[in-house]
């Protein structure tokens, strides 16, 4: 066990450890593996009561085919994408600027503004629910993707500003001073000096926000209804109503809904973890 490196421990323990790893992993992911198994079983297995036997034949193509061609799932996925991507762009853009202002300039209210963003980021959603729904209705944006995107950008800018400001604080201030001595305008300092240095933070935040927003459920059901604007987290409820008790299809639907952020995580793992743990380790 830590802190003893495995290489220095007895051979018997090394073998135990290596063989226990996959067992532990299977136990950890058991509920998910069960759903994955369900999603490739043919319909007959369920009507026959063979829930936990191996699939009698591979029904994966048919099940996933029906999810994509006989339900509104593709539409919900598209909605999710059209909500998630603009939110990530908007929130990152706002917070790059706000983070620059809070990380570089010393002014009296600096820490107060910063703490306002941090505190707002932690409030329970319910305290915002009624007024935000009202505001969205008043702007005529209820049940539109735009309405949802605007709220998400605003709310996420709290967390993003916290993140960006701390990142910018870690940049060498001498660079900015040097630029000022040269007489470069402040907005040029932002665009030509700070922004290029922020690339890793921008990548990390984009991936993180993509996942957060893709997985949002509460605001989706508060601000939208119906297939034309609901994202997949909310849409899966109607999907399940359509295929009630058809566990092979519901399982396939759940996997399809969960897949995009998972793919994002595996493709951008380094950025993702850097984003989640920023501040935990300097």
């Amino acid at each position: 066990m830590f802190p003893t490196p495995i290489q220095k421990s007895p051979r018997s323990w090394q073998i135990t450890y290596q063989s226990f790893l996959p067992v532990a992993l299977i136990m950890w992911l058991l509920p998910l593996l069960a759903v994955a198994l369900f999603s490739v079983k043919p319909e007959g297995d369920f009507s026959g009561g063979n829930y936990w036997s191996l699939p009698s034949s591979f029904g994966g193509f048919e099940n996933y085919g029906r999810v994509f061609f006989e339900s509104d799932m593709p539409r919900y996925l598209l909605n999710s994408l059209l909500i998630t991507v603009p939110t990530a762009i908007g929130a990152v853009a706002l917070s790059c600027m706000a983070g620059f202002a809070l990380g570089i300039y010393k002014f009296k209210l600096n820490l107060w503004v910063f703490f306002l963003f941090v505190a707002g980021n932690f409030v329970p959603f319910q305290i915002l629910m009624v007024p935000v729904r009202d505001l969205t209705l008043d702007m005529g944006l209820y049940n539109t993707k735009t309405g949802l995107v605007l709220f998400h950008i605003a709310f996420q800018s709290g967390f993003c500003t916290l993140f960006m400001r701390n990142f910018i604080k870690g940049l060498p201030f001498a660079l900015i001073e040097a630029a000022r001595v040269e007489g470069i305008a402040e907005w040029r300092i932002f665009i030509y000096i700070v922004l290029p240095l922020m690339k890793p933070a921008i990548a990390a935040l984009s991936v993180l926000i993509f996942t957060f927003i893709w997985n949002d459920y509460f605001w989706a059901i508060v601000l939208t209804q119906g297939v034309e604007s609901q994202p997949v987290t909310a849409g899966i409820t109607s999907f399940n109503a359509q295929f009630r008790a058809a566990y092979h299809l519901m399982s396939a639907g759940a996997i399809v809904a969960a897949l995009p952020p998972v793919a994002m995580f595996f493709l951008m793992q380094k950025h993702f973890i850097a984003g989640l743990t920023l501040g935990a380790v300097k």
């Binding site: 706002l94 917070s95 706000a98 800018s157 709290g158």
Partner: peptide, 13 residues
């Protein structure tokens, strides 16, 4: 630089 973020954050949060 703060204005857009503060505006959004104030209106929605």
């Amino acid at each position: 630089f703060l204005a857009p973020a503060i505006l959004f954050f104030a209106a929605y949060v």
